[in-house]
Design a protein around this nucleic acid. Sequence first.
DNA 1: TTTTGAATGGTACTGAGTACCGGCAATGCC
DNA 2: GGCATTGCCGGTACTCAGTACCATTCAAAA
Lengths: 228, 228
Amino acid sequence: MSKPTARARLAQAAFVLFDERGYEQTTVDDIAERAGVGRTTFFRHYRSKEDVIFPDHDRLLQLIRDRLAATGNGTALVAVSDAVRLVLLHYIDEGDLARRRYALTSKVPALREREIVSVARYQRLFREFISDWMGDPTESASLRAELMAASVVAAHNHVLRRWLRGDSPDPIAEVDEAMREVLALFPGPQSRPRAADGGTTVAVFRTGEDFDALLPTLRRLIGGEPER
Amino acid sequence: MSKPTARARLAQAAFVLFDERGYEQTTVDDIAERAGVGRTTFFRHYRSKEDVIFPDHDRLLQLIRDRLAATGNGTALVAVSDAVRLVLLHYIDEGDLARRRYALTSKVPALREREIVSVARYQRLFREFISDWMGDPTESASLRAELMAASVVAAHNHVLRRWLRGDSPDPIAEVDEAMREVLALFPGPQSRPRAADGGTTVAVFRTGEDFDALLPTLRRLIGGEPER
DNA sequence: TTTTGAATGGTACTGAGTACCGGCAATGCC
DNA sequence: GGCATTGCCGGTACTCAGTACCATTCAAAA
């Protein structure tokens, strides 16, 4: 057990140093030296300094891709909800490592941005899958696919962050519940929940203002006369 | 007209060079030289090489913040939908410039990532606004706020990208329609737990009836007991 | 005329990331 | 054993973004 792989030592060294003196204050040279390897070796194992924190996003993305490709029956949203569980489970498996990473990304803007970009890749994958699955090239279906993908990802992130913060004793149950919530947002396989042409959408809210003062706003929302 | 400001010349030079030889192949030195200024001056006007493409995201973000702060009546979602229109209008005002930027971000990964990060900032702002507005600290309300923010942003991006690609002759109408769609996703009381006495409660639902036909019923409901 | 201040340009530095080369095992085959 | 191949490693040198600092210029204000 005397020698973990160079890759593992690099990751370990990086986390220790980032904790000790902060991310920006740590150079790649520092990490390599601490791990007892050359600088070149660092870049052989990790594409960039940020990469040492997020080693297997690519692998995970591929996992999701495969899972979606192997999806059987059910709706697109169900398949995607199912796939997104995998991501959550992956983080939970990482356990403490995921929490340390979260602590880092919360502090360092560059890392947070990297995380956001990764999440966007998942969302894109989902959007494309849903769009393909629906096979409906209309503008409305396209928007719907976009909304679905965004909702699934948002729900996942919500539960994940809660767990990372230690606020969620049972993230699996929570993500299932959240996914049910998302599914409930999009009723019906294809058809939009609109009655006939000329249907009316009314919004419910509470305000201190008088009803008549609200009428113009209401009318605009409903789509009578587009108002600028 | 002999001398546009250094800032403008830099932006102009950057776009020309990016078109000519690509983003990565263009150095900051190239841009500065072409604009006839020193390298230092470039970084005085733009924080980074990427910044010259996205000059006023910060300003726009502040604009949105102000708009949300000044919001009058309506639900949180309505306020946010309203604010997001501003963003779309800003892009439309930019016109061809926005399209050139889109062409660049489509080709250059680094720029696309930058764009994604910017979008995430809007989404965060919206989420916080909705969350504050709801004033409901439960987990379920928090998830709801997250979903709403994600949906609004997704819908906006959808319309924006369509317009940028030249697929949308009337993006304003489309964004209004898309926002109605988003509103329809989130029915039920989004009311704050506390409202002043004598306030007005309105409920959101979809019906096949004409709005004017509904008005008497609405008034009766509102006039009597605030109903959920 | 003098002073002040803002915009500029130049120089030098840090640090990430890339390219390339040479060394050094371990494994293969003859 | 001798020998070539392959894969991992370390070192050097380079490019370029971004920062820090200083000197200059020029114009408005005093």
